[in-house]
Design a protein around this nucleic acid. Structure first.
Lengths: 139, 139
DNA sequence: CCTTGACCTTCCCATGATGGGAAGCCTTAT
DNA sequence: ATAAGGCTTCCCATCATGGGAAGGTCAAGG
């Protein structure tokens, strides 16, 4: 299988397959005499693993560890769960951060007429020297 | 005021102040004879504006527009609101994406014993050939 | 007066994960 | 035989930020 086939079978772009190889996430692919990379079903399986883990938001360094555990028949499931829980915490943190931004912005946007007149609570807030205004009062 | 003062008064690092100047987000600072950048209260005000907008998650290109509108006494508030609403949409999208990841991962983590035994639903899911291999790419 | 330490300057490099594209070689189908 | 398209490597760009080196400047204290 060429890299193009491996790509379409795994959902990982050829560019990324080469990159994963370069950082040691994927084993070095075999080569034809002409230098083309050659992939097996097993490689495609690995790539799909990486793609799924990426879809769940894992960083490549986490995926490196997950791949190691996946291929280790004697792994303790606790090791896997720990990585997953750490990532869940990270997701929770990011979600809360974005939600705080969204809440503040929504309050400001609701207060803004959105017409031809120049007065705008959004700019007033951004430019005010004091505190954020509604963020501390509300919720 | 030196860049260090401007930094501590605005909460923007000196590094970033220079960067914002280099990309034309901030006007070129005046210089002392020795080449030190010089800042006024007004510049600090601008920097605080940028910092607040960053805290709300706006991209620098959005902030460039917001700064333009802020300094334009005749702006229509609709222009500001449009930028804000677009950003709210983006936040909403990202939040939903992260929440979907979190949900999936939580289900998997709940099903994982997290002990010394090797069987692990998380790895089973990541490695299963089943859902979603080569077809639809969503971006 | 000279040293010291804290500041400033510019310039280069790194991040994380990905895409774009050029120059050149290989394969396959017409 | 030639054209199309796939493959190779290499370099560059993103986005916002930090790190650090090499060197100039300023203020205070011996």
């Amino acid at each position: 299988m060429n890299i193009g086939q491996a790509s379409s079978h795994s959902g990982v772009s050829a560019k990324m397959i080469r990159y994963y190889e370069s950082i040691g996430l994927m084993p070095e692919a075999g080569r034809t005499q002409a230098g083309y990379r050659v992939y097996s079903e097993r490689d495609v399986h690995l790539l799909r693993f990486v793609r799924r883990a990426r879809d769940l938001g894992f960083a490549l360094e986490d995926i490196r560890m997950l791949l190691g555990l996946w291929q280790d028949d004697a792994r303790p499931s606790a090791a896997v769960k720990e990585i997953a829980l750490k990532h869940i915490d990270e997701l929770t943190r990011k979600i809360a951060e974005l939600q705080a931004m969204k809440r503040s912005l929504q309050h400001l946007a609701e207060a803004c007429h959105g017409d031809d007149r120049p007065d705008c609570p959004i700019l007033d807030d951004l430019g005010s020297p004091g505190s954020r205004g509604d963020e501390d009062r509300c919720h």
